[in-house]
């Protein structure tokens, strides 16, 4: 039975009280949102809403629960850009290493 119900499809399951939480979006979260929006617009047409939803669902239950909302978006979006050959694994890996190294040099 559980295989029939996909992890994201959770309407009606039991859970605790809703925590009335919110936070102002962090800059990196807004950037994820803005990149998604640009990739989806008519000019680029590289990412449909349903592709992003599918990408998030396909992260699997463990990642779905561990990642926060925008981490899911980011992970799914990267996967789709790789699948579509917009980015290559090698260049994304190298660029991430570069960003990380740069960050290590940042003045605190």
């Amino acid at each position: 039975m559980t295989d029939r119900r996909r992890h994201h499809d959770m309407g009606g399951l039991e859970d605790g009280p809703v925590e009335n939480k919110e936070h102002n979006s962090e800059p990196w979260e807004k950037r994820v949102d803005a990149i998604r929006s640009l990739l989806s617009d008519e000019k680029r047409n590289l990412l449909s809403v349903d592709e992003l939803r599918r990408g998030i669902e396909d992260l699997g239950a463990d990642a779905y629960d561990r990642y926060n909302y925008y981490e899911r978006w980011m992970a799914a979006m990267s996967n789709i850009l790789l699948q579509k050959n917009v980015l290559s694994v090698d260049e994304l890996g190298r660029k991430m290493a570069e960003v990380e190294a740069r960050q290590g040099n940042k003045p605190i």
Binding site: S48, V49, D50, E51, R54
Partner: peptide, 10 residues
């Protein structure tokens, strides 16, 4: 159909 869109068929 979202079932098409989700897999890149626009």
């Amino acid at each position: 159909n979202p079932e098409d869109l989700a897999y890149g068929t626009y």
